[in-house]
């Protein structure tokens, strides 16, 4: 029983970080219909920024927001200078539909190469800002530490802020409208191109948070060829697809589901199966519920 609760706690924490990555992927998909593999690279680059700021200032609380802003700027930059010209030129016929996907894969490679060039074998250090020793209950230590609570708190806060922005503000209305129906939005006077860049920026900021939390929750250091980040990207995508790729709530539920299932497999089956399990879940969801776990047929949600 104790073991099960601990497994769930580990799964929920990891899953909440996958949720953030999934949100990052979903936001770009909704704003430009592009599967953004560069999201993993952007999270990585932002985490390096975070590590650099942490080294300079010593404060996680300065490093995190600056890394988020950096992620937003990187992401908006990529949308504006790479994807926008590319999408204007490429059509939707034949092989052209693959252009944006290949472009984002290429960008992922470019970002890693640049980071490799700058950092080489050096790593960025992002140790947990709070104790990661589990709280003790009746003599036993549980898998909930101040650090894990902090991660859950940050994720929750970010999700609440995003929900408020999307549901309660004019910007949010523009973002939703532009993703549902770009042409009608243009006719209503929405500057859809600008709104798309904003969508990418938010995605970049969320991705940066995912990257930093993934590092502090894991090894505590980030390298250009970090396996942790490959996992983050893959699990983020799987979570986004499980959630129906269109929905923010879906991305959250997808991330948590994936995190919990993977934690259970890690605990009771074996660590070597985790990666395969993620793909099995992906395939099962695509076979049984191709619209995702909450995506009702044809109905898109905010």
């Amino acid at each position: 029983m104790f073991e099960l609760i601990n497994t769930l706690l580990i799964g929920i924490t990891a899953g909440s970080i996958y949720s953030l990555m999934a949100i990052s992927v979903v936001l770009v998909w909704r704003s430009t219909r592009v599967v953004n593999f560069a999201a993993g690279g952007l999270a990585l680059a932002s985490s390096f920024v975070g590590a650099a700021i942490l080294e300079k200032t010593g404060s996680f609380w300065i490093a995190l927001p600056i890394a988020m802003v950096a992620g937003a700027v990187f992401s908006a930059f990529i949308e504006y200078f790479f994807l926008r010209p590319l999408l204007k030129r490429s059509g939707d016929k034949g092989a052209e539909i693959f252009l944006p996907i290949i472009a984002t894969l290429g960008l992922l490679g470019i970002i890693k190469t640049i980071l490799n060039y700058i950092y080489g074998d050096r790593v960025g250090s992002l140790p947990p800002p709070m104790s990661d020793k589990g709280f003790v209950f009746s003599g036993e230590s549980i898998a909930l530490s101040p650090m894990r609570l902090l991660i859950l708190g940050i994720v929750l806060l970010l999700m609440i802020s995003l929900t408020l922005v999307f549901q309660r503000t004019n910007l949010g209305l523009s973002l939703r409208a532009a993703s549902f129906a770009p042409e009608i939005s243009r006719l209503a006077g929405i500057r859809v191109d600008f709104i798309r860049t904003v969508g990418w920026a938010i995605s970049g900021g969320v991705g940066a948070t995912a990257g930093i939390l993934q590092t502090t929750n894991g090894s505590g250091s980030v390298s250009p060829e970090s396996f942790e980040f490959s996992l983050l990207l893959v699990f983020g995508f799987v979570a986004a697809v499980i959630g129906g790729i269109e929905s923010l709530i879906g991305a959250v539920l997808g991330g948590l589901t994936l995190g919990i299932i993977l934690a259970i497999i890690l605990m009771y089956v074996g660590g070597s199966l985790v990666f395969i399990a993620a793909f099995l879940i992906l395939i099962l969801v695509l076979l049984l519920r191709p619209h995702g776990i909450i995506g009702a047929k044809g109905g898109r949600r905010a």
Binding site: A177, F180, S185, L187, A188, I190, R300
Partner: peptide, 18 residues
Amino acid sequence: SVIPGLTVSENLELGSLW
């Protein structure tokens, strides 16, 4: 030309956002 995923009120407000 309405946006199905938005409410009636949101569809209207969209027109005056600018």
